[in-house]
Design a protein around this nucleic acid. Sequence first.
DNA 1: CTGTTAGCGCATTCAC
DNA 2: GTGAATGCGCTAACAG
Lengths: 369, 369
Amino acid sequence: MCEVHTYLLAVRGIFSNFATMPQQLTIKQIATLAGVSVGTVDRVLHNRGRVSPEAMAAVKAVLETHSYRYNLHTSAVAFKKTKKSFSIAISIPSSEKGEYWDIIRSGLDKAFREYGDISVRSEYVFFDQFNALSCREAFESIAAKDYSAVILGTTFVDETVTLCGKLDEKHIPYVFVDGKVPGTNPIASYLADQEVCGRLLARLMDGLTAEGDELALLIPHRVGARISNNSAIRMQAFKSYFAEHRKDRVIREGFYSASSPELTRSEISAFLEENPRVGGVAAVISTGYIISDALSDIGKKAVVGGFDVTEGNARCVREGTLDFLIDQHPEQQGFNAVESLLHYLLYGAPDESLREHTPIDIVFLENLG
Amino acid sequence: MCEVHTYLLAVRGIFSNFATMPQQLTIKQIATLAGVSVGTVDRVLHNRGRVSPEAMAAVKAVLETHSYRYNLHTSAVAFKKTKKSFSIAISIPSSEKGEYWDIIRSGLDKAFREYGDISVRSEYVFFDQFNALSCREAFESIAAKDYSAVILGTTFVDETVTLCGKLDEKHIPYVFVDGKVPGTNPIASYLADQEVCGRLLARLMDGLTAEGDELALLIPHRVGARISNNSAIRMQAFKSYFAEHRKDRVIREGFYSASSPELTRSEISAFLEENPRVGGVAAVISTGYIISDALSDIGKKAVVGGFDVTEGNARCVREGTLDFLIDQHPEQQGFNAVESLLHYLLYGAPDESLREHTPIDIVFLENLG
DNA sequence: CTGTTAGCGCATTCAC
DNA sequence: GTGAATGCGCTAACAG
């Protein structure tokens, strides 16, 4: 039977398929087709007004049938001539090299480099992610100036809402990285689906630990502020997974101070000694390596899962003390944030193709790269 | 202690950081700095010759200190004027919609669309991946013509080597997707690290199955041709993992005919009934869904792992009969292949930044997307 | 309101 | 060997 199958394909033989890519329409061609000039086409495309209804209709008709796409290459070139220059403020938590926010930052910078054609001035205003006051100060300094656009890390909800209200009034566009905040109107928000992150964490912890093991969910607590929105969603999703699929699993919750590694270590050690039957430990933020190190310290072996390929996490994966990481692609989030903002600044409208959320990957030692 | 830590950061307060992206040098600026004209700079940059030693030295000196980078945007624009047009032949296995090679194809097409600025004609010549003769015919038809460049799926080694020899003689550049072949000189090869794929498969099967379970490694066999190189490497790596880390695990090997779903199903059913203690089944090619379906048929539950997010695989993941997929990003492979080829055709040299291998991700139900 | 035109950075042609 | 000049698609200023 298999022979017959193969034979049939052989008889059918090879077949080929010629294709010339549909040449992109140029504004010149559109102008010719619509019987107007390039200037008019440009005005229609950019909603610059000062176009007669007839001309408008003619151009729109051509656009309908041929589906025009901007040529970003030449746009960028032409924009240079206008010497239009933008200032973009970025306010995100400060971070050590190789930590989560530093990776986002490298994505931001990569985009600024890639779009170096366009004249953009970027200005970073960092704040302390464990201190709401420093965030407020940072945001106030941003509200006081008139930037072309703003990129915000959404660590503190109330402060973000306040700033965004002011930006809305001034019609300054903004985008979020690593979060979204209800009651605001960003051009776009770049973040991984936190629900998925939490359930994935649960699924992997469940699958990779032995049947009878207890599992630990370690929760960071912040001084003087409620737990970050992302962590809360992940925790909730983590627990939902077990409530729905594995009611029999015992989940122990422990709190630790993410702001101080030394403290974390002692808190976690104590927690694990109190819960000896724990065979898997889940971190809901990107500092899982602290947990791995604490486990090493007390000589305990457990499956550990965390978030993001930070330097500390990568080290622990290589050392074999951290089993897997859920990668939210912070670098891409940063890159997309800048890209979408520039698109908005240049064309006056958000780029639809950039609205999709960033993908979520799973990283083990083997594919750490 | 934690209080003190936070306090210190608060006192330090926010801090900001201004940055203007280093403006890229233009060839005009280089020309001015070197005291020559843009034409001369261009000749130096493109090694076109006809430049006096003094001019060469002057330009090189400026390039050393300022590190010039091509502006791909404007290059593409300028190239259009020359009306230079390319014809690229692509010979890969034919494939149903949503299957592995069709995904590669969509990546190829995406690149052709994205680089629609450049005048490129693409021509597909498909062959039957289970029939070496059809591959030979396809490759001969390519050798008979004079394309600007060629993209090849490396399913059949001998045929590939023969064709590449002829292309080398004619100085026609080519790149590989989904493989590499010793004894050939491609501009680039795009494929996931097969060693990593195999070890990752092993690691996940090991982790996700119960301690005492036997594991099955299912191997496709091809009529009239030896097993594909990629599958062989994955199998080898899979077995190495267990030989190195888990000598106690029992691995059963089973063969099945990947060319006919019906046959596959019956073969796999028979295999599993002969090996009742198998708790995990690993597929080394992208048709894992056939295994899942066979398991469903006989009402057996086992952890199943496979490769790539094809339509069939995605369906089984959603149905819960396929547990995870190792994603080789075939779409990106296709995209990169075209991109690197165009870079070569335009600039006469491979783009170093495009030589990196494609990343490998792991997909569960949750992050199927 | 509309069409014309200069010029962005670059590749190439063509006089000198 | 060399530099001036042209034009790619596009933006925006400007003259009608």
